[in-house]
Design a protein around this nucleic acid. Structure first.
Length: 438
RNA sequence: GUGCCUAUAGUGUAACGGUUAGCACUAGAGUUUGUGGAACUCUCGGUUCGGGUUCAAAUCCCGAUAGGCACCCCA
């Protein structure tokens, strides 16, 4: 019979996580959570879907994510919902909904979960992607973004990922607007000579003009008015404070005047951690590619937009898919074992015949309580096959129970290296094993 | 959303348009059934899907799907 293959395939841009990749993933999120908790962040889990307007109001009506990338659907009752495309907005929503204004400020939260965007999948970019997100709510001082950056930096370091920090400031409402005006009038003069993408950007989101990688646009980009020249005194002082934190914490950074982020809610500080990745092209040559592994910034107007109340805050996210893919590519078996700290079974339980099988199935619980990691075969009958499996797993000891042992309540401990065996009553065998595998 | 490249058992691969799609690894069974790692034997398992060209298609063409890369965007 022919199996219908498309039934057996995950939807585009999604995948099953299993095996070594999942072990790395879990370890990564463990490290994230461990460090974040230590620095005072509390976990929150927001729903996977929210009201559509929540995002369209906050991310910017014209942002790519809102326009084209949200998974939206209607409920039977007629509500318009979307799968969450990012974490900051739901967390700010939760802040107000749960009345976190009454907690000691600022409120530090982290969220680890899946987010959804309808994009063309690429390496490290999926339609369901994992992100570890940090938010500091109710703090307008530079210490907020400094802390977020600090913790991301520590996490990346702990993971062994070499990433460089890029910083920029986008100003506040007023100074950003005046800069944007300058930028627009500057680019208007050269509009004819720009690439077609830039012509589109000019109309839709002029700030993005600074992102262009087209060769022919570089000279315009270089001479374009820079945010830093237009930023108001308050914003400048704020940014300076952020940089002073970086210096004090000895976090190296690079100012990147063309670093702008996609969502409307960002104000003042924006940051990205960029990892350099070696990729091997088809012709065999190596190429260095830079990939943003974490990013975020300050969002002082988001609270106002969502609730009409002021709520300064800063936050950001680590892209887990990217981090995991970087880690698994640069990891050999030894590094892997060390990294994931997986507990390998130490003992293989062999049973021969139905009486022994019944007995050993009951015994499993005694071994679990004695904290002896145990492996076994559910279906193999021959001692040959079971020993073969035990050898493949590399366990130091096997336990063998046959008809005879099942009858007399004993069990054989076999040392897999030496081949030495001894027969002991079951309880004593458990004690003996506990000693041996320590 | 756009462009380019790719698609053969679970994995890695082979097959001038012409036998029964070959090989390795993995998996399963076994090599006188209560003793493993080696070796050997056997077995399961494949041309992504749908059209077309042809006497003949894994191979050529078109479309769909999926993957990779770049752009766009972004974590």
């Amino acid at each position: 019979m022919k199996i219908k293959k498309d039934l057996l395939q995950t939807p585009r841009g999604t995948r099953d996580l299993i095996g070594p990749e999942l072990l790395i993933w879990k370890r990564v999120t463990d490290i994230c959570e461990e460090i974040a908790s230590y620095y005072g962040f509390e976990e929150i889990r927001t729903p996977h879907f929210e009201h559509s307007e929540l995002f369209s109001a906050s991310l910017g009506e014209t942002s790519e994510v809102v326009e084209k990338q949200m998974y939206s659907f209607r409920t039977r009752g007629g509500d318009s919902l979307v799968l969450r495309p990012e974490a900051t907005v739901p967390i700010v929503r939760a802040y107000f909904e749960l009345g976190m204004q009454s907690l000691p400020q600022p409120v530090l939260l982290y969220e680890n979960g899946s987010f959804f965007r309808h994009e063309t999948p690429q390496k490290g970019r999926y339609r369901e992607f994992g992100q570890f997100d940090l938010e500091i709510l109710g703090e307008d001082l530079a210490v907020a973004e400094a802390t977020v950056i600090r913790v991301f930096g520590l996490i990346l370091k702990e993971l062994g990922i070499d990433a460089s920090l890029e910083l920029n400031t986008m100003g506040d409402k007023e100074c950003r607007a005046s800069w944007r005006k300058e930028l627009t009038s500057y680019y208007r003069k050269h509009l004819e000579k720009l690439c077609k993408d830039c012509k589109r950007r000019f109309k839709e989101n002029p700030i993005r003009l600074l992102d262009c990688k087209e060769q022919s646009c570089q000279e315009f980009k270089a001479k374009a008015p820079q945010m830093l020249e237009y930023v108001c005194d308050e914003c400048k002082a704020h940014f300076k404070e952020v940089l002073e934190f970086m210096d004090a914490l000895e976090i190296p950074y690079k100012l990147n005047p063309s670093l702008v982020r996609g969502f409307d809610y960002y104000t003042r500080t924006v940051f990205e951690f960029i990892a350099e990745i070696k990729t091997i092209k088809e012709d065999g040559t190596e190429e260095n590619k830079s990939l943003a592994v974490a990013g975020g910034g300050r969002y002082d107007y988001l609270g106002q937009v969502l609730s009409g109340k002021d709520l300064p805050g800063a936050g950001g996210g680590i892209g887990l898919d990217r981090v995991v893919s970087i880690l698994s590519e640069g990891m050999d078996d030894e590094n892997f074992d060390q990294f994931v700290k997986a507990e390998k079974p130490k003992v293989f339980l062999i049973q021969l015949g139905i009486a022994a099988k019944r007995k050993t199935l009951g015994l499993m619980e005694d071994f679990r309580k004695a904290k002896i990691p145990l492996a076994q075969s559910l279906s193999k009958d021959s001692i040959r096959g079971q020993l073969r499996l035990a050898a493949k797993l590399g366990v130091p000891y096997s336990l063998i129970m046959g008809q005879k042992e099942a009858l007399e309540g004993s069990i054989i401990i076999r040392d897999m290296d030496s081949g030495m065996q001894e027969t002991l009553p079951i309880l004593r065998a458990i004690e003996r094993l506990k000693m041996k595998i320590k």
